[in-house]
Amino acid sequence: MFTYLFIVQTLNGLQFGVLLFLIAAGLTLVFGVMNFINLAHGVQYMLGAYLAVMFYAMTGSMLLALVFALLASLAVGLFLEFVIFRHLYDRDHLDQVIATFGIILFLDQAVKYVWGAAPLSLPIPDMFSGSVVLMPGLIYPIWRLVIIGSGIAVALLLYVLVSRTRFGMLVRAGANNAPMVSALGVNIRRLFMIVFGFGTMLAGFAGIMIAPILSVQPGMGDTILILAFVVIVIGGIGSIRGTFIAALLIGLADTLGRSFAVDFLRLFMAPSPAQVVGPAIASMLIYLMMALVLYFRPTGLFPPKGR
């Protein structure tokens, strides 16, 4: 019984980790390449979910909803980049923080205004609904496996893109030394725009994928944003590999901590204090991890070289 629960929770942890990776990847690229802190990344994830709900209601097809929502996410991202973010790249980090905070305020409320404050939901596509028997007595929802699979696929795609292509080379070089890249005569503006649009689309994709199993509601992007920042800082800013490892680490630690902290503490202490302390430790766990990592590696696990 315990083993089954453990496997299920591990899978849930992986699924959560993959979701975090999808969001954090864009964040770390934008941060690493453009040195731009984009707090609005979380609301772009939220917007992805809402757009999927909306397009699904309009078309009735999950596939069309996915495609349209992705395109719309991209469009919103590029629009914001063009109108606002572009003017903030060479500004102080704090200016970027406050401006993108303003965008959070706006979009959180705008979403409430347009779609209402009540949580919405998106059905799981028929093809992937239901559960699959992984082992005798162990069933697991297919959609969660789809999320894990698509996340790993994106990770591989990103890996190939960043380590094998010319575009990837520029991105890596940009993460280490942006002035040098522009000195090479590369069109930095266009590179930034592509990276930014790509990051936004990934966040939107995460929102779309999670919409069927999570309630879609205003503010859903804020908590995940903080977690995504935790991930990129543990991973080392600008490092895709670090982000992937850190995302899985955080996803697993958080999920397993929440399910097993109490049981684990019972091994050492009386049940009633364990009942109280357990959840607290579980919520703190990832922050404890981050503090520990930064204590021993002040620039994360995989800092890009040359910083």
Binding site: F31, I37, H93, I226, F229, V230, V233, I237, V276, V277, P279, A280, S283, M284, Y287, L288, M290, A291, L294, Y295, P298, T299, G300
Partner: peptide
């Protein structure tokens, strides 16, 4: 003593970490 070992964005995030720990501790 721990936070000040880091710089820049890492400092921002580690102070956030301790803030969150205090937050969850209070909640417990």
């Amino acid at each position: 003593t721990i936070c000040l070992r880091t710089r820049g964005v890492y400092f921002i995030m580690i102070t956030l970490a301790f803030g969150q720990m205090a937050y969850f501790f209070a909640g417990s």
